[in-house]
Write a protein that binds this DNA or RNA. Structure first.
Lengths: 193, 193
DNA sequence: CGTTTTCTTGATTATATGTTCAATAATAAC
DNA sequence: GTTATTATTGAACATATAATCAAGAAAACG
């Protein structure tokens, strides 16, 4: 019997993702969100509870789309090392002229919110551990393929996670592509046989 | 003829540094600053103009104290590689049970403010390039000492900068010491002869 | 068609924010 | 001691913020 919702939740949240991504949590006001989502505050509050609820939804959406696609590149490569390299190459592309110009929503969330909102901290931890797991699997595969240096194994995943976070931070300083490529090359060269 | 200022500027700014460091720019209100600095808003505005002016002063102070000390460890070591290692070891200590638990004020500023405040972005760039220069010098020295692997030279400084930023992000997720130590070991192992 | 239920609208509210300012207090020079 | 100058105080201000809500609109069902 009810009136049906006029807007599509996913596309609305996608807009919210972009806005939070670009300006951070405190940096974006309800006004910005209304403008970006093309919705009135009432609708947003009806659908998501409050600003924080919308942010939580945006994190989920980000992880389910942007991040999932990125992670998929790791396992969808012909070899373990190729997967890792594909992941970082794509990241570099996105930093140079894609959405990753604003870093990574999750990395930004770590910096801004991890220490004041336990629920967000948990979501972050889950996501990071998912990336970590993907790196682990790729490293194990690469190891089995004999592509890694002696003493290098799946346990180096956190190191890759660290490099990833570093790249996401540097992204915000608009570095030229060769700089990013050199960093990735160096980071991976240390692992290769 | 004037009445003399009652509070010491440096110690007041030190308190501001801590507060901004912990809670970010948007995350700390004038109330917090008044409480932390034990000053009334009027005094703060008289001395620093506005909240942003105080933040700028805090960045300068941070760079002049915390960051300067850290950088000094690089050049004040018996060898180039020792300097780099000392720098990261100290960082790990500070992350585990020191102030770096809240990351790095500059790294946090990159994430939160670099893309919306050009003056802050400039200050950040100056600082990062200072760290980069220190890494470069240490790498050159290590190279001259024959401590680096073939093909590794001063140009790897940005790579170290990236790892540094990554560690500062991970710091906010409260990682256990061995994890941090493993990351540093891996990062440096890739450069060593 | 009428009713019910839900969504949308956008003005309104309460609050918190950064900021100002007039009054007061303290110092240094004459 | 008087005066000139500056610091401190803390209430007050303007603004922006997140959040609410009553009125109107739209759909589904009987």
């Amino acid at each position: 019997m009810p009136r049906v919702r006029e807007f599509d939740t996913d596309t609305a949240v996608d807009r919210a993702v972009e806005t939070f991504w670009k300006h951070g949590y405190d940096g974006t006001g309800m006004q910005d969100l209304c403008a970006a989502m093309d919705l009135h505050s009432g609708s947003i509050y009806a659908a998501f509870g409050d600003k924080r609820g919308l942010y939580l939804a945006a994190m989920d959406r980000y992880i389910d789309t942007v991040s999932r696609d990125a992670i998929a590149r790791i396992s969808g490569a012909p070899s373990g090392l190729d997967g890792i390299r594909a992941y970082f190459d794509h990241l570099v592309d996105a930093i140079v002229d894609g959405k990753r110009r604003w870093g990574c929503l999750i990395t930004n969330a770590v910096a801004e919110l991890a220490q004041r909102d336990p629920e967000i901290a948990t979501k972050i931890a889950v996501h990071l551990s998912r990336v970590d797991t993907a790196f682990q699997a790729a490293l194990a595969r690469a190891q089995a393929e004999g592509a890694l240096a002696k003493g290098v194994g799946p346990e180096k995943s956190t190191y890759l996670l660290c490099v990833l976070q570093g790249l996401n931070v540097l992204a915000k300083t608009q570095p030229p592509r060769p700089v990013l490529e050199a960093i990735v090359d160096t980071a991976l060269a240390g692992l290769e046989r």
